[in-house]
Design a protein around this nucleic acid. Structure first.
Length: 418
RNA sequence: GUGAGUGUAGCUCAGUUGGUUAGAGCUCCUGACUGUGGCUCAGGAGGCCGGGGGUUCGAAUCCCCUCACUCACCCCA
């Protein structure tokens, strides 16, 4: 084979595409009910947009970005996530001049140069939502509830909702110091990954799956104990509101975010059926990001959901079967021409109609009707054209109904049956 | 970036200690059944056995290299 998709990229073909449509449609309806508007952003930004927001030392920026020079010598990057682009657009178009909360959602491809793995691709699709301008934890509860509703409505069950607070600029450093003090004394006993994390991202050690590390980190200073009053009140209220909204969740103080811009609330939805890539959706608050992008101080909160994580979970649940309302089976050339015209008239009424353009035995045409899951067939031959009468046969229950060779009447029968 | 596994038909996979022209099931096309489907039967189409090199009278099979894919680590949605 001469050409193939690049590593970690994939073609999305029918019938899988109908799952995508199902998810996108369902999400769009729920977004609408919460007042979220769609925005479409470019898939490329100036590299600085991501470096500044995601964090220079994060793995994403350090080794996973598709960064290159355009012909004008500018460093540009294929977006590895949506929030940074969104905040750039928010500031650029002065969206803060609209009454808060301003609520937006987006969908589209993201790019990260990673080794592909089950449920992990280099080009992957996210549906994300961002709500701006409100600091109150009621907004946190609302957006988490919305996410829960979306996942539920598309048909996913048995997901784990976890939340925590990772503090703010004031209190987070205190916790980090306390954590490093605690871990530092016995660092040699940890796995090599954890020893490396101690310098790069000590919080990650709390997430390590190596049994020895789990044992060693017992008794480490909990994040939630180090929250400043403001962060603690915020988190307490969020818990109250989530209970009020009956969102099923649990607190996981070891939840870690890979991006630097998060503050206070962090949340994650995971599944046990995704191998090692358990995250289905995740998000959090980012109260200082707009200011860092040069806008007025504006709090924000958002999440992103990974399509490639959701779809495999859905494949077991959702049934995909799709076929035309009608297949026209002509027996000779004259009938074929008549059928061609009839098909157009029916399609003009919005019906999905197929016609066999090549004349083969009636038997094989009927077989084809089965294969393409046609719901009804009509046979067109001399008899039908001379008598101007046809039979609409249901392929599902074999019921035959006589009709005039007339698009209106045929359409009425098809609509009655669907 | 690190480690392991797998590459044979469109798909799922057989292929014995190396031995004629590489097989099966599903799918696709045709017919049995000449104007009514799903079953059955028969026939047909479809292969650089991932690629290159080596050993051998002879390689899908053994050896070396390479490429691709998959899974896991890492990281993350």
């Amino acid at each position: 084979m001469k050409h193939k998709t690049l590593k970690g990229l994939q073609d999305i073909l029918p019938p899988d595409i109908s799952i995508w449509h199902h998810i996108e449609k369902t999400a769009a309806n729920i977004f609408k009910s919460y007042g979220y508007h769609e925005i479409r952003l470019p898939i490329m930004e100036s590299t600085e947009v991501f470096k500044r927001s995601i964090g220079e030392t994060s793995d994403i920026v350090e080794k996973e970005m598709y960064t290159f020079q355009d012909k004008g010598g500018r460093s540009v990057t294929l977006r590895p996530e949506g929030t940074a682009s969104f905040v750039r657009a928010y500031v650029e178009h002065h969206l803060h001049n609209n009454p808060p909360p301003q609520k937006y959602y987006y969908t589209g491809p993201m790019f990260r140069y990673e080794r592909p793995q089950a449920f992990r691709y280099r080009q992957f699709y996210q549906i994300g939502a961002e709500a701006m301008g409100i600091e109150d934890p009621k907004l946190d509860a609302e957006i988490i509830s919305m996410l829960s509703r979306i996942l539920d409505s598309i048909g996913l069950k048995g997901l784990n909702f976890e939340i925590t607070s990772i503090g703010c600029k004031e209190c987070r450093p205190d916790h980090k110091i306390a954590l490093k003090n605690f871990l530092g004394s016995k660092l040699d006993a940890f796995c090599s990954d954890c020893r490396r994390r101690y310098d790069t991202n000590p919080l990650r050690i709390l997430d390590c799956k190596v049994p020895a590390c789990i044992e060693l980190r017992k008794g480490s200073p909990p994040v939630l104990d180090y929250l400043c009053k403001e962060c603690k009140d915020h988190f307490d209220s969020l818990n109250k509101y989530l209970k009020l909204l009956k969102v099923p969740y649990r607190v996981n103080p070891n939840l870690v975010r890979g991006l630097d811009y998060y503050t206070k609330t962090a949340f994650e939805v995971s599944s046990e059926n995704l191998g090692s890539q358990s995250a289905v959706a995740a998000g959090g608050r980012y109260d200082s990001m707009v200011k860092e992008f040069g806008g007025p101080p504006t709090p924000g909160i958002g999440f992103a959901m990974g399509m490639e994580r959701v779809i495999p979970l859905l494949k077991d649940v959702i049934e995909i079967s799709d076929g035309p309302e009608l297949l026209i089976c002509p027996l000779d050339n004259a009938a074929s021409e008549k059928g061609l015209h009839l098909a157009e008239l029916l399609r003009a009424k919005g019906l999905w109609v197929e016609i066999n353009h090549e004349i083969t035995s009636l038997k094989s045409q009927m077989r084809k009707a089965n294969r393409i899951s046609a719901k009804n067939v009509i046979v067109l031959g001399d008899d039908e054209i001379n008598s101007h009468k046809i039979v609409v046969k249901s392929m599902i229950d074999k019921v035959e109904k006589e009709s005039k060779l007339d698009a209106d009447q045929i359409a009425a029968i098809l609509q009655q049956r669907s």
